[in-house]
Write a protein that binds this DNA or RNA. Structure first.
Lengths: 124, 124
DNA sequence: GCAGTTGGTTTGACTTCCAAACTCACTAGA
DNA sequence: TCTAGTGAGTTTGGAAGTCAAACCAACTGC
């Protein structure tokens, strides 16, 4: 739901910079990955990302404000939420897939023991 | 040149997290964009990104250590460098293109006055 | 000489990030 | 009923990162 006015960016008025304004903070893209992989609750997202709890709480708020994720209560008293990707969040998976391909090619060592369990593209 | 051992990541041993370990810091991807757009020198990169000078100095170092960019001296006394993308850096442009497409669709307002000057994909 | 340019580094204030502890509302077991 | 445990955050205090602005060093042009 948030839009970023190109004129307010430092440097070039470029959509890439605008995107990073919304999802460039630490852990933001991993939260999206985690939800895409099926973690819908706070604790699952914390475990899946390995991030500090307060950071996940903060990111869930900014990502919701940005319209990338949404939440729906799954119980009252105390109120608790399931998090899910919006259409905007789904479209972000193309960015994650590009990072996945790049990481596999250039960042992860070819002989990394954990590499055999390959991750698959997140998009359908 | 840097590889990231999946076992040392918090959370899932995922190449996406490994990638973000190298290029997830603030300004890193915009430095890559800027070099891709033809800025090869320190001052040009500072202007193009709009980032603080000390941040650009720091990113150029980490990106070089990560093997994403390289530099070649274009003069001695004082020693000065041109920065360029390595093969790894070139491959990162697919990530930037995905961010560009996402930003254009979901982040930049359709009626943003600066939007008419469309950016093109960075990959060939 | 002296101003201007380039490519940084340094400074000090501010913001973000972190791990760990804490809170709150509930649930399960003894 | 007392105690232990769980889930979802919030709080805390210190470390790390970020920022704008000033500074510096080595040139270049006048």
């Amino acid at each position: 739901m948030t839009t970023v006015p190109l004129a307010e960016l430092p440097g070039r008025p470029c959509p890439i910079a605008a995107s990073l304004e919304l999802v460039g903070e630490r852990w933001a893209l991993l939260v999206v990955r985690e939800i895409a992989l099926g973690s819908t609750r706070f604790g699952d997202i914390v475990r899946g990302t390995g991030a500090p709890r307060d950071r996940i709480a903060a990111r869930l708020k900014t990502l919701e404000a940005a319209g990338v994720i949404g939440r729906t209560a799954y119980q009252e008293r105390p109120e608790r939420f399931d998090y899910h990707l919006t259409e905007s969040g789904q479209d972000l998976l193309s960015v994650l897939d590009a990072l996945l391909a790049w990481g596999d090619k250039h960042v992860v060592a070819p002989d990394d023991p954990r590499r055999l369990k390959r991750y698959r593209r997140l998009t359908a």
